[in-house]
Design a protein around this nucleic acid. Structure first.
Length: 414
RNA sequence: GGAGGGAUGCCCGAGUGGCUAAAGGGGGCGGACUGUAAAUCCGCUGGCGUACGCCUACGUUGGUUCGAAUCCAACUCCCUCCA
């Protein structure tokens, strides 16, 4: 049982999967502040829920008086991590990467304090050092410490070799660069801990070896479990794609809904991982049964959303959900879509309105939705495929469109 | 350099001349049940059109044929074995 505050809470909340040397790390954390880092690949212009456990881990680190370092892989993004991927990742251009870095930074700032003090978070970009590397120097300095035999034995590499897809030399080098990152952060920022998902174990251990061999220093690795939902699905996918942390890519209301729809069996685990609520409170909420657990889910949703988008936005989402689902009303804060008043005046077929408003991807999809009985206008099912919507359907200046039970939108003439 | 195998819809994967917008599964969407859960069951799942219909699609380009995802040729990429 660890003694340091950070490790104790991290363990109790379910953040820890494996540690390279729990006792020594525990001792180091009791002795003084530790700087720990996690790498984020800028593969999109926003992080998503799949990375959230890592962000929360950095947050926890900061809470207990240590320094979190977020490393953005601006350099390694140009290679792509082969770990457990079926195919080589697409190579990205510099412009794309730069735009992605900006988006990710915005999310990180929500969760971490970048204040200028001993626990202030630091944002690093490995492009700052990787871009300057000279190939020969790298081989002589770092390459000699890597055993190909050993690299081949890593699950991540082996699985790719056994597959038909193969593995390019480019990807094979990812682990070397990640190791180099660790050493670089250790040298410049005194970082002695790398954290990451359990799939990063091999890469993390490689970095630790490198630091020990070249700098004769002990550094640590700590991994989080791979998160799946209780029914086995990958965490972080919602009905409509990835659950983004950026409000530009996923409305706050949808983000709140994602957490609200957590499976019963996951409520306790998610409360502990993704909210700041005290453990005792998490346990109490998770113990609720049947319909009562819905209250726990609402708290989970509001707390998790508050961390990401701010308390006010989270409360607003909760209220919008309450009115939509518990009162069946059409509140003003549902997503709204403008439509030219003239179009509405002339009357528009319902299926077309669903397409225009973005509720359906094509006329065919909208028709199927109607045929399947899932389309509603102002909460009245659309029975007839040829039904026409017009000004007569305006209610309080808008028309409510629904696709299924959970997706609603207001169309407002302008 | 040589020999062989492969490329099918969002994904996996059948299909070896017309009955194929293409089996089956997964995923997704909708419905029922419920608690805005899970599990289960049912329907739908290329685009356009109210519809008999039209268009696009089985790696690329050409060809054979009344007719091709299916046959032929060349090309591209991937895999396996040999050198």
């Amino acid at each position: 049982m660890p003694q340091s505050e950070f490790l104790r809470e991290a363990e109790a909340r379910g953040f820890i999967f494996q540690c390279t040397d729990m006792e020594a790390l525990d001792a180091a954390m009791q002795a003084g502040p530790v700087a720990g880092y996690i790498g984020f690949d800028p593969t999109a212009d926003s992080l998503h829920v799949g990375s959230l456990i890592q962000i929360m881990m950095l947050r926890l680190l900061q809470k207990h008086g240590h320094r979190p370092v977020a490393l953005l892989g601006g350099g390694t993004a140009r290679i792509g991590d082969p770990s457990f991927r079926e195919e080589a990742r697409m190579l990205m251009t510099g412009d794309t990467i730069a735009a992605n870095l900006r988006g990710i930074e915005g999310s990180l700032r929500q969760y971490l304090s970048f204040a200028d003090d001993t626990t202030g978070a630091v944002l690093a970009n490995n492009a700052d050092w990787l871009d300057r590397l000279s190939y020969i120097d790298l081989l002589r300095d770092v390459g000699v410490h890597f055993s190909v035999n050993r690299m081949l034995s890593f699950d991540s590499v082996r699985s790719r070799l056994e597959r038909e897809q193969g593995l390019t030399f480019l990807e094979f080098n990812y682990s070397i660069l990640q190791s180099y990152d660790f050493r670089e952060l250790n040298r410049t920022l005194g970082v002695t801990l790398q954290m990451g998902g359990s799939d990063q174990w091999g890469n993390i251990v490689s970095g630790i070896d490198l630091v020990r061999r070249t700098d004769q220093k002990q550094v640590f690795g700590l991994t989080t479990p791979l998160l799946t939902t209780a029914s086995g699905a990958k965490m972080g996918k919602s009905a409509r794609g990835a659950v983004w942390l950026s409000a530009d890519k996923l409305p706050v209301f949808e983000y709140w809904q994602f957490w609200r729809n957590t499976e019963d069996a996951d409520v306790g685990r998610f409360l502990r991982l993704f909210t700041d609520l005290p453990l005792a409170e998490c346990d109490r909420l998770a113990a609720l049964r049947d319909a009562e657990i819905n209250e726990a889910k609402k708290i989970l949703a509001t707390e998790a959303t508050a961390l990401c988008h701010g308390r006010a936005a989270a409360e607003a989402a909760a209220e919008a959900a309450r009115r939509t689902f518990e009162e069946g009303a059409a509140p003003a804060d549902l997503p709204t879509r403008p439509i030219p008043a003239a179009v509405l005046a002339a009357g528009i077929p319902a299926f077309r309105l669903f397409v225009e408003s973005g509720m359906a991807a094509s006329n065919g999809e909208a028709r199927r939705l109607i045929r399947g009985g899932g389309a509603r206008v102002n909460d009245v099912p659309v029975r007839d495929e040829g039904a026409v919507v017009s000004i007569a359907d305006l209610t309080d200046g808008a028309i409510k469109l629904s696709s299924g039970r959970k997706h609603h939108l207001l169309v407002r003439p302008e």
